[in-house]
Design a protein around this nucleic acid. Structure first.
Lengths: 307, 307
DNA sequence: CGACCGGCATCAGCGTTTCTGATCGAGGGT
DNA sequence: ACCCTCGATCAGAAACGCTGATGCCGGTCG
């Protein structure tokens, strides 16, 4: 299949456009990018002339409707471009002995830690959505991400670069409730029972509430206390203290004063996956192999192949 | 957050690289792209020099390991770039009166057809995975895609451009069996009961088998007859004739001599979604509104926001 | 009210990039 | 042995993209 025939839209122009939009200033963008203000002006003029549309309102500088749209295209495009470059230049360099692992907060499982070599390892905890970008940019060699999914369903991840995802583990889910909660003694809970409850909102550490809403197909799941850290023990403690419910993998023990009740419906699991760029090399390969004993691999770049 | 600082990797160079790789020929690519062979040679040299890696073996011309990797980056990149360009230039042109609708084979539902205006409409049936690209390229104004999904889960689609997906319908699933089949009189079937059966392999028309394997987490689901068309009636007839089983939305009636048995486990639905680029305008807006009476919208560009 | 100042547009000029066209060496087929 | 195709390389010409200077507009302050 032939790849398109248009091309143009020089990434340099896109980059200055994005910068101008972010700073709301031509001269500011020029300073940041190391250009003359004149050059920046010409860049924007070139883009607008090429597309036949005004992209920015001047005085004050703000993107037009078309400009907004171009930003939506340009930002991921530049991300991918940098990712491609980083990936390829990495292939040129010899594989270093050091290994950097980027992990989402709930994705670091004791088994995982046991599989790591003793030395020259950096473990970096990042928000889930930034891990693919970190891999792509070469900031990390291996990624561990987690999320809610139907059993055996791969996770949905931002598509910034051709990454390979491998299933590491799946665990059932449990709702953490304070011991005195009326539902705390049930053997199992359905998500529908808990729509009207108040939930901890912990986007960095836990499972985001909008994912629950999507899974159940309703709004609801009102946020109570918001926790911006990544520490899971704090989260369970908050649940024990009655600040709201949390849904966590069943492998996480509840804090004293709390109970973890298995979630029975819908059939969701907490899935963790290993992410890597292309062929693993050097120490990354060893760790990757150790983490994925039952190999169940899937490409995430083009998810629709499986849909 | 600032967008990366590297840039370079001129798309023109990437385009000639992709073309050279596809044609396995420098001069062939030159002919196709309207360059001199000399220019193509210099393009490749520039890329290789820039990255510090050989990308192509000469004589015969074939991508190296690094070249393969670059292709994986470059192809979606160019796709996105063209999509961005097409999207923006479309904004420049006045919205035409004509409406082109790209639909996956199983996604065209009677209700959908009823919602269409009487004139100036083109309905084009495409493989599911090509619909986002068609929208992005401006070949179609609206897309209708379908697929297997957990209830209330959005579909997984190739991420070529910022598209908006809206739920149109969800239907339960049914397995089509010949009337004489031992399981034909069951009230319901579980997917696990059918791993060892032979299945129709109809990637263009039906639900792909590898999606079933993913849903059940096992290999199995051996392909029997392969059907490359997109006609659903043929598919049901093939199932009736005993050429293999098919899984179809329960809204599709079985052919004479066949029975449709509801699928009870796992909890999967046949979901159809409406796709559009940014803000709908002109007649597309009317149709889009008509198709999505209960609005349940979601951005597909960055699926991880919900996971 | 007028001068000033910051910010974007425009222009000429020049250095660099990036084509073309010609030439060369290496293989492969006749 | 010859020719023909293919890719690499080189010199020159055209095109491109940057800088620095200048112009214009709007807001601000004496």
């Amino acid at each position: 299949m032939p790849v398109g025939t248009l091309v143009t839209m020089d990434p340099h122009l896109l980059r200055t456009f994005v910068t101008v939009a972010r700073l709301a200033s031509f001269s500011g963008a020029a300073r940041e990018l190391g250009y003359t203000q004149s050059a920046v002006s010409q860049h924007i003029a070139a883009l607008e002339g090429d597309l036949g549309l005004p992209l920015l309102a001047r005085r004050p500088v703000a993107p037009t409707r078309a400009g907004e749209r171009l930003l939506e295209h340009a930002r991921p495009l530049l991300l991918r471009l940098d990712a491609a470059r980083a990936d390829l230049t990495r292939m040129a360099a010899a594989p270093a002995g050091d290994l950097t692992l980027a992990a989402a907060p709930l994705a670091v499982h004791p088994d995982t830690l046991a599989a790591l070599p003793a030395t020259r390892v950096t473990l970096r905890v990042l928000p889930r959505d930034e891990i693919p970008a970190a891999l792509a940019a070469g900031t990390a060699d291996l990624g561990i991400v987690d999320g809610l999914a139907a059993p055996n369903d791969p996770l949905r991840l931002p598509d910034v670069a051709p990454l390979t995802a491998t299933r590491v583990a799946e665990a059932p889910l449990a709702v953490h409730l304070p011991a005195g909660h009326p539902l705390a003694h049930r053997p199992g809970l359905r998500l529908g029972d808990l729509i009207d409850a108040r939930w901890l909102d912990a986007p960095a550490a836990g499972l985001p509430l909008d994912r629950l809403r999507a899974a159940h197909g309703t709004p609801g799941f009102r946020p109570a206390l918001r926790y911006d850290g990544t520490d899971v023990r704090t989260l369970t403690a908050l649940a024990a203290a009655g600040h709201g419910l949390t849904l966590l993998p069943a492998t996480i023990p509840p804090a004293p004063g709390a109970t973890a009740v298995p979630l029975t419906e819908p059939r969701l699991v907490h899935r963790t996956e290993l992410l890597r760029t292309g062929e693993p090399a050097g120490p990354a390969a060893t760790v990757a192999a150790a983490l994925t004993t039952p190999p169940q691999s899937a490409r995430v770049g083009h998810p629709a192949r499986r849909g």
